[in-house]
Nucleic acid binder design. Structure first.
Lengths: 232, 232, 232, 232
DNA sequence: TATGAATGAGGCTTCATTCAT
DNA sequence: TATGAATGAAGCCTCATTCAT
């Protein structure tokens, strides 16, 4: 399902296979249960001992990073396609639509898209990149007058965050409806004759960060002298 | 804090008191920790044995139902206030704002507002009542032309669902920002010159119900051979 | 085996029984395996679910404290008997002998006698009380000239510490030999014509404390959001 | 660091090198963590696969044996130096001091000095050799009247055993204090006017052996159906 | 041969739930 | 009736050890 043959440089064939089994199982379980999924369950689903999972991915973050390794590519491609679109509004909307389409199909992806994961460079990189793209598209659409001028990146991000927390579940029940939902939400950004005046300030980037921190996967016990001790 | 004298008709005085203690504690814990809170924690906070909780509220649903019994009142009052507002759009927006204000301050409330709780008449009743109100306000605003005509109740509900899954967390980080967020989202419903055409159909009521079922509190283990055992 | 009926104020009879079973099992396991014993093993040996152990004794320290609850009495009695002895040296030696006799019979007791257990008031209290007694007896014997004047409390304590780390094991192999061992060691404190000059300074009380900290029982994972999460 | 070219007679050059890396790493880890150190940690520190460790040293004992193979040299040199000392008491005390100095700096060495390792010829050989030397020095000091005549080799050994179980920890907290501690303890052996009469008999050599057996490194699980499994 | 990989069991901790008082 | 008590299972993590390359 995932194809990151280059990511794990030299791994024995069977290890490579197990790694893939784990990633696939994790993808599946995350899709179903979201970011709080049990690691043992993932190992079980992969048909692999739990310790194998720990060997391959010492922390939950490592596993998640691997699961979403190809997300970077997805974002990049979506960005590229969006940049080819002439109409600024359409470019903006299309980019968000593509991102959302990805998330709608995967509860885990949705969860992680906004989750803190402060420790995971890869995940943060993807998010930052996506936000960079978003900012560009937003600027362009505002310059052209399609989007109301008092909208900030964080407004868009927050709206996406909210969407992502619902679309995967909605998808299992009414596939495709998210497109309608998203179209409506996007219209809220439009620069039209009748818009509600915004009194509250937008979130700051730091507040967004702290918000993301609140959507964290479970944190296990710390690793100072824990666990197994003696086999009597 | 809660006053549901009719709900539990004949109960000894102390039982009545315990019931109330539990509801108050649950309200508090749910507000802080959301739908997944530990039942033992609730009993502890109420200063009551855990078994008492089980006796009073055999299932988690029963407890939650009681906790949100008074929400009906809140919805009713919001509805009343909204109906006093002349401008249809303002009425619509104000009602949603009041509901959201409540949810923003209470993680448990937000969780449960959309949560399945199929078994819970009370919760469903509140939801249905709220939806009835919403439908009225929506109709009115559409008749007057403030809201685009191809919007359905489910579109509004779904948007609210998404909001509720984010606002409580946002509130801890940037209080009040949800107003901005909500204003933008509501503008999406407006009937303006430039709106995106909606190709996908709205959710059906039944789909909404099945969606709500996906946001469930934790389910316990399968208990087949549990309980007290003499020490063999 | 232990008899602390007053310690746990009002406990249901079965709980009292289980508590006792746990303490007995812990005593036994600690005697055999020392302070690193597995908590699950203790529960198993007591014929009780592991969670019961946690309910009764939330931390390892709590359990250990209970196991050694009667140590205080032992120390007090030994002190009383020692104070009745006229000859200062005999009083000093006898007190230490009684303490050691207790420790020789119990590896767990020996371990804990010196172990850090910084969190356990009871254990620390016993240790401090014992040291107070020791100091008195030491002073008396030094005033009378039986013990060389450049000996400090910490010298005695350290010697005891060393003894305790060996006597329980020795006891299983050659019961009673510890008396011989102890007699020889005590003679080292005597004020005689031929003693080795002591060039190094004695340990400070603080150093003793930090030494004790090095003999710690295993530390489990921390309790921030760990363990059980969902029962899917 | 170690040089046991004779021990492993014919080994490929790289094997020889790995063997040495492992011994060095083990020495280091044992020094820091004592006898219970993790084997994986040792292999890791050696920069070598864990299976290599198993191939080179099938059992923990085998590894420990190799680690302490050179201890024979240390003992021999200490013995030599002691024999050059004219005063019998000084010779006796100096030898013990040198041995203890070694142990104080090395937790693993201390642990193993007395540990059972019944299977390990090398460790036993070192111990026996050291005891032989000790016996000689003891005899000499007793003949000259410096040490009381009713002291036996096992008395000295046992005292050393007790010291070794404390000095490494003490060393980290109050370096050098062991010298004071040791000096006091040694004085206990002296032939002076005032000594305590010894009623209990000394340990027999066999009892000492069985005592040593009680200080064992961790034993692994029972492995009956382990290993690699195809994923069914 | 050397190695990384895999494994299951074991340790700790918490939770929803039933039992006995 | 109210309550504390008991329970097993599930979660997380690590280790000694065997297997396959």
């Amino acid at each position: 399902m995932q194809t990151d043959t280059d990511v794990a440089p030299r791994l024995r064939r069977d290890a490579q296979r197990n790694r893939q089994l784990l990633i696939d199982a994790a993808t599946e379980v995350l899709r179903e249960q979201g970011m709080d999924a049990s690691l043992d369950e993932i190992a079980r689903r992969a048909g692999v001992g739990n310790a194998t999972l720990y060997r391959r991915f010492p922390t939950r973050e490592d596993l998640y990073e691997a699961v979403f390794a190809n997300m970077g590519g997805m974002v990049g491609e979506a960005a590229m396609r969006a940049h080819l679109i002439d109409d600024p509004w359409t470019a903006f909307a299309t980019y968000i639509e593509e991102i959302t389409q990805f998330c709608a199909a995967d509860r885990g992806l949705s969860d992680l898209m906004m989750a803190g994961m402060a420790k995971s460079p890869a995940l943060n990189a993807v998010r930052l990149e996506s936000e960079r793209v978003l900012q560009e598209l937003l600027d362009r659409a505002q310059r052209q007058g399609a989007i109301r001028p008092d909208i900030y990146l964080e407004d868009v991000t927050l709206m996406l965050c909210a969407m992502h927390r619902v679309t995967p579940a909605a998808e299992t029940v009414a596939p495709g409806t998210w497109r309608r939902h998203l179209a409506i939400a996007l219209d809220g950004f439009r620069h039209t004759g009748s818009t509600t005046e915004l009194t509250a300030p937008p979130m700051t980037a730091d507040q967004m960060f702290r918000l993301a921190e609140q959507f964290q996967p479970p944190k296990g016990p710390d690793r100072s002298a824990a666990g197994h001790r003696e086999h009597p």
